[in-house]
Amino acid sequence: MEVIAGVRWFLTPWEFAPLVQAAIWGAAVLYLSGCWRGAWPGIPRVAAFAIGLVGFYVVTQTRLDYYAQYLFYAHRGQHLVLHHLAPFLVALSAPAPVLAAGLPRVVNEPWRRWRRSRWLTVLSLPYRLLQHPIIAGVLFVGLIYLWLIPSVHFDAMLSAQLYWLMNASMALDGLLFWWLIFARDAAGLTPCLSFGKRVALLVAVVPPQILVGAIMVFSETNLFDVYSVCGRAFPINPMTDQQLGGVLTWIPAAMMSVIGVLVLLAMRLNELGGEAARRPKTLEVA
């Protein structure tokens, strides 16, 4: 009985967010229905999508969100999942065909027609702009920095609306970035970068993340006093909290780039080996 009570305590959202719930459950239903209709992409990709989706859910709609609000390092862990881990897995699973197959038939037909129309080309311009490799890299690192400016961070942790905006911006930018890194469909809306550009982008975002993590680890002042002001989830030395947060921003975040490069390399080798006869069209060496 105690286990059930504990599970219920953990699973009860600290702050129920209808939009987050709708987005995650909607994506899950769409994906399942796509699989059901024959777009089954194989166990590894389904697992990657599922784990990514569960990751988004667990860090925003369970008790973990309480700790993320009242402990700095838990907050850094939350952003690691929102900006790196979960979108990495979702993008890696290349879910677009499955999700499209899952659309209800009433939507599916007009959607396909619309996809071929010129309107989409015009409307997708802002998206293509955001997915320019330089802009995408600057956004990826810039958002990490923006929300870590001490005064901005202070306000974001005080205001429920800003807190929500912060987490939403991290999750959406994470999806944009990793989507660009792992894009496989040359005919899709997302620019299909060369193998070399993808690797360069992954490598370029590492030093600034190491820098901001190191600043937090080696700083001798408490940069984020909002956690002292509002109370911590449990007693922990503020400097220890900040250093743990810095380590979480530094090491796993930079490691995701390394893993990303390895995945790209595997995809590239797979392509070269499997289609040796044909010239690969999607991932060409820059």
């Binding site: 609000q69 005080l158 205001s159 429920a160 989830a233 449990f234």
Partner: peptide
């Protein structure tokens, strides 16, 4: 008011 408290 986005504050918390806990007991020792």
């Amino acid at each position: 008011y986005r504050v918390t408290y806990s007991y020792g």
